[in-house]
Amino acid sequence: MSTPDESMRGVKTLGIKLKPDVHAQLSFIAQLRDGTITDEIQIAVLEHIARAKDDPELAGKAAQARAEIEREAAARQQAIATLFADGSEPTPGTSRTRRSPKGSESTS
């Protein structure tokens, strides 16, 4: 049997404000369905997400976002490849020593 903490892993809590009349209606709907307001809100959110998946305008925006992410990733990969073009890419677990800026050495 799982504890309440285990069953809530990966769950996000969201607080929303509802006008009193909307809350009363939602509460009544939940009561009629032998559920909770949380159940009703989850149903509404899932239906909203399902409708969003079928929205061609949103799909176009998502495609543009994906393309931008891919462009940024390619640019970063190219920057890394250029930086280590001579094959001197550091191996994991090693570090390079930094030089002190001029004039920052202490004198005794």
Score class of each variant (00 low, 15 high):
1 M>Q: 11
4 P>G: 02
6 E>K: 01
7 S>W: 00
8 M>N: 08
9 R>D: 02
11 V>T: 05
14 L>S: 05
16 I>R: 09
16 I>K: 03
17 K>A: 10
17 K>H: 07
17 K>G: 02
17 K>V: 07
19 K>H: 12
19 K>Y: 06
19 K>L: 14
19 K>S: 05
20 P>H: 11
20 P>E: 15
20 P>M: 10
23 H>R: 15
23 H>C: 11
24 A>E: 09
27 S>G: 06
28 F>K: 06
29 I>R: 13
29 I>N: 12
29 I>L: 15
31 Q>D: 14
32 L>D: 12
34 D>G: 15
35 G>W: 13
37 I>N: 04
40 E>F: 03
40 E>H: 02
41 I>R: 06
42 Q>T: 09
50 A>D: 08
52 A>T: 08
54 D>M: 07
56 P>N: 10
56 P>Q: 08
61 K>F: 13
61 K>P: 00
65 A>M: 11
68 E>S: 01
68 E>T: 03
69 I>Y: 13
70 E>N: 05
71 R>S: 03
71 R>E: 11
73 A>G: 00
74 A>Q: 12
79 A>H: 12
80 I>S: 02
80 I>M: 04
86 D>P: 03
89 E>T: 06
91 T>W: 13
92 P>A: 08
93 G>T: 02
93 G>R: 02
94 T>E: 14
94 T>K: 14
94 T>S: 13
94 T>V: 12
95 S>T: 14
95 S>W: 14
96 R>S: 08
98 R>V: 03
98 R>F: 05
100 S>L: 13
105 E>F: 07
105 E>S: 06
105 E>R: 14
107 T>R: 13
107 T>G: 04
108 S>F: 10
108 S>Y: 07
